[in-house]
């Protein structure tokens, strides 16, 4: 088990402390942008656990996010479950979905698995539209309760959740589970020869990724006050998650968070150029990926040779 040296963690801690005291000085708008960015960060970090460590090409992060979001939203809107219980229900639904997604992953890999995960998203989307009576269909589902209507508390919830998720995911990735996943992802047979049960670890990886994706999806619903296909299920959201993880630096966990925050803040800064902002963000991301394959984290000197 590798330890995280204090010297490397120090800048991170400074950034986090700065973020934690931000509500004292910043206005509601900046907090609002960062709140969404933090939930996106968890999406990207969970995805990185699957891809970066286990080598699973998952094109459907929104399958897990969507299950968590709709599970929680429906629990609150239909069963009148209080928010914490609803979030728990959403997380359970997402984990079940994650395990279901792990089954094809045991047999398939590369673009084949990628397609299956993509199809899972499309089927979820179809199901939401077909069962519009309980899901709200393409118009979306309004949930009666929200975490808070003030930006301050919403921001703190999101920040705390991101830090905890990042910490847990990093510990898992650096533990023996992460090592075995990485080994199995690179050479299945060798890993099996060493006596590791790759199947069990793979299912674990999917379940953990699903847990955090689902929790983040559920929390996002109670931040937005609505669950809708365009916010938590659409393939384009999944694309943004993947881009965020690769952009920040894959196989680092924390890179996902950096990429997600970068993408959302850049999109926000480019708002004045209007319609073309998405184009420019995509262009920047493309340039970064081609020139800096290790992502934004690759820029930090301390990571070189690590």
């Amino acid at each position: 088990m590798r330890t995280i040296s204090l010297r490397r963690a120090l800048p991170l801690i400074i950034v986090l402390v700065f973020l934690a005291v931000l509500p004292l000085g910043a206005n509601g708008y900046i907090l609002g942008v960062l709140t969404t960015a933090f939930y996106f960060a968890v999406f990207a970090m969970s995805w990185d656990l699957l891809f970066g460590y286990a080598g699973e090409v998952n094109f459907g992060p929104t399958f897990l996010i969507g299950l968590g979001a709709y599970g929680a939203g429906m629990a609150n809107a239909l069963l009148h479950a209080p928010v914490p219980l609803a979030i728990l229900i959403g997380a359970i639904v997402a984990v079940a979905g994650g395990v279901a997604l792990a089954i094809p992953a045991l047999r398939l890999s590369g673009p084949y698995l990628g397609l299956i995960t993509l199809v899972a998203v499309l089927l979820l989307q179809q199901a939401i539209v077909i069962f519009a009576g309980v899901t709200g269909g393409e118009i979306g589902l309004s949930v009666p309760d929200v975490l808070s209507i003030d930006s301050g508390p919403n921001y703190e919830y999101a920040l705390a959740f991101m830090i905890i998720s990042g910490l847990v995911l990093s510990i898992i990735a650096r533990s023996s589970l992460g090592m075995i996943l990485q080994a199995a992802g690179q050479d299945k047979i060798a890993a099996a020869a060493l006596g590791f049960n790759a199947t069990r670890h793979k299912i674990m990886a999917f379940a953990i990724s699903a847990l955090f994706s689902g929790l983040a999806g559920a929390l996002l619903v109670f931040y937005l006050g609505t669950a809708s296909v365009s916010a938590v299920v659409d393939v384009s959201i999944g694309v943004r998650v993947i881009i965020a993880a690769v952009l920040g630096g894959r196989r680092t966990i924390i890179g996902g968070a950096i990429g997600a925050i970068f993408l959302i803040v850049a999109g926000e800064l480019l708002r004045p150029i209007g319609q073309l902002s998405t184009f420019v963000v995509a262009l920047i991301a493309l340039i970064v990926i081609v020139i800096l394959p290790d992502g934004l984290l690759g820029l930090l000197p301390s990571r070189r040779g690590a």
Partner: peptide, 9 residues
């Protein structure tokens, strides 16, 4: 990833 971004552009 790169062609995905290119498609978005």
């Amino acid at each position: 990833t790169a062609t995905l971004l290119w498609g978005v552009m």
